[in-house]
Design a protein around this nucleic acid. Structure first.
Lengths: 97, 97
DNA sequence: TTTGTTTGGTTTATAACATAAACTTGTTTA
DNA sequence: TAAACAAGTTTATGTTATAAACCAAACAAA
């Protein structure tokens, strides 16, 4: 009745990150930071977890002379995200009066 | 862009409980336990938190000679639940290919 | 009637989690 | 050069979710 929700995605910040990455080809660290309003520390930790699960890839490069961390969603990540959204429906009944 | 999600509702079990209670007049402990598949201990703790927030009321009575704990959603709880569902939409983009 | 079993929970302990604060490394600016 | 800034990472801490252990009352059986 209530399917298990992927605990890796059932987290406000990680979900926001995945939501962004699901809609773009890539996004860099600072973009994710400003869009989500997260602190850099928190974002760094959560990106690491998403990377460990192979839901995203993180590529460290440079933009000019400044470091630039580019994130992309993986096929596995996209699938997990869509599965999560489906599962979540069961928890959201059609609106009450 | 990503509204803050009520942390009290952004929890798998509490959300399931609220989802059930939003659709019925009342539900007792054992019903919630079987429907959610939760352990009694976990359910007890989470009901306590929802009660502390005045999202539900818990009434301890008897059914026959056995104790029976009846739960109901409060108006505040229903409002919070609906607000949460609205906020969640921002995290769920229209499905990806 | 006392022994065990089930029901309906609560309390407690633990591991995972989210988050902010502090730190690091390098770059730009005064 | 020194100070400020950018882009992150690491560390520390409080909060959470959860299961395990526990408790009390009712029922069943011997």
């Amino acid at each position: 009745m209530f399917p298990k929700l992927d605990p890796l995605l059932h987290s406000e910040l990680r979900l926001a990150v995945m939501s962004i990455l699901a809609g773009v080809e890539s996004a860099d660290f600072t973009y994710l930071k400003t869009q989500t309003g997260a602190t850099a520390g928190n974002l760094s930790v959560q990106l690491e977890k998403l990377t460990a699960a192979d839901y995203i890839t993180v590529e460290k490069g440079f933009k000019g002379r400044k470091p630039c961390t580019t994130c992309r969603i993986t096929p596995a990540g996209l699938e997990a995200f869509n599965t999560y959204i489906q599962a979540l429906q069961a928890y959201l009944p059609t609106a009450q009066k």
